[in-house]
């Protein structure tokens, strides 16, 4: 099966570069490209690719809004953010908008191809550089308790400790204790990192998070 790909990036030279990454690959076919948000939307709507490589910063509609539109229109297109920004908040914003992956433009051709294949098969791909600036903690997902998983998911959906506490009928203090334990187990320093790590290790899935 050939994966149809659309590439949206406003910089011609980098766009050419990515095209070269994809050239000559039997299982990947570039079906369209765009240099701004509006035309990217048009190309995606027309070509209905399996994967759309989207730059966050583009003239017209920005990448995150484009992803949100793809999801709102119910198009079966896996969006993979291809960007220069290494801010975790962008990763979360993209994932919240419905992106299936986040990869930096400095990634190697092999990493890009791997990411395309993973998101095309409904997986989630996070660039190692943005997902973690921390060392691998030698972690196995079983270590999170079901309650901790629940707390992490709710926190991931943007709920405050207070809201989580009232939803789970536990005290806010207990929520804080759970979060501290989650951070500890995942080796994260904060909620964002914990969430990205949990996604990376498959502790939680993007679908669960977007529920």
């Amino acid at each position: 099966m050939v994966i149809k790909v659309v590439l949206a990036d406003d910089h011609p030279l980098t766009r050419e570069g990515f095209k070269s990454y994809l050239e000559g690959k039997e299982d990947i076919k570039l079906v369209g490209e765009a240099s701004d948000g509006e035309s990217a939307w048009e190309v995606i709507k027309e070509q209905l690719p399996d994967v759309a490589l989207i730059d966050i910063r583009m003239p017209g509609i920005d990448g995150v809004s484009l992803v949100r539109r793809v999801r709102q229109e119910g198009l079966n297109v896996a969006c993979l953010m291809l960007t220069s920004y290494d801010a975790q908040q962008y990763v979360l914003a993209s994932l919240r908008a419905g992106a299936k992956g986040y990869i930096l433009k400095t990634a190697s051709p092999d990493e890009l191809l791997r990411a395309i294949k993973i998101v095309a098969s409904q997986g989630v791909y996070l660039d190692k550089e943005v997902a973690l600036a921390v060392e691998e903690p030698g972690f196995s997902p079983e270590q999170l308790s079901p309650r901790e998983r629940e707390v992490l998911l709710l926190a991931g959906r943007g709920e405050s400790s207070k809201e989580i506490a009232s939803k789970l009928y536990i005290s806010e203090r207990t929520v804080q204790t759970h979060l501290a334990s989650i951070y500890d187990k995942l080796g994260a320093r904060n909620k964002t990192e914990a969430l990205l790590l949990a996604l990376k290790y498959g502790v939680v899935t993007l679908e669960e998070l977007l529920e």
Binding site: H11, T14, E16, G17, Y21
Partner: peptide
């Protein structure tokens, strides 16, 4: 939009 993209493009060529 300028140097960062240019260097990125340069890196892409190096990787290729």
């Amino acid at each position: 939009d300028g140097p960062l993209q240019d260097v990125t493009a340069l890196l892409q060529r190096i990787l290729l």
